[in-house]
């Protein structure tokens, strides 16, 4: 199978590759978003702890 045929997938290449690409982007977004939310909540908690310690 040539690279062109693999990429083209009959005449459905655009549909198939765009679905896989969008899935990859969506899963990366999800992984980053939940991780960032946890980190930001933890940073807030750290700031609170430091602020309490300073009082």
């Amino acid at each position: 199978m040539t690279l062109g045929a693999t990429w083209g997938m009959g005449r459905y290449g655009g549909y198939v590759w765009s679905c896989y690409g969008l899935t990859l982007l969506a899963l990366i977004f999800l992984a980053v978003a939940v991780r960032r939310r946890w980190r930001s909540e933890l940073n807030l908690a750290r700031l609170r702890t430091r602020a309490r310690g300073a009082l």
Partner: peptide
Amino acid sequence: AMICDGICAEIVKRER
């Protein structure tokens, strides 16, 4: 895995 991160964020928010 996403639930693990999400639940940690929620716990930190609730247990400030």
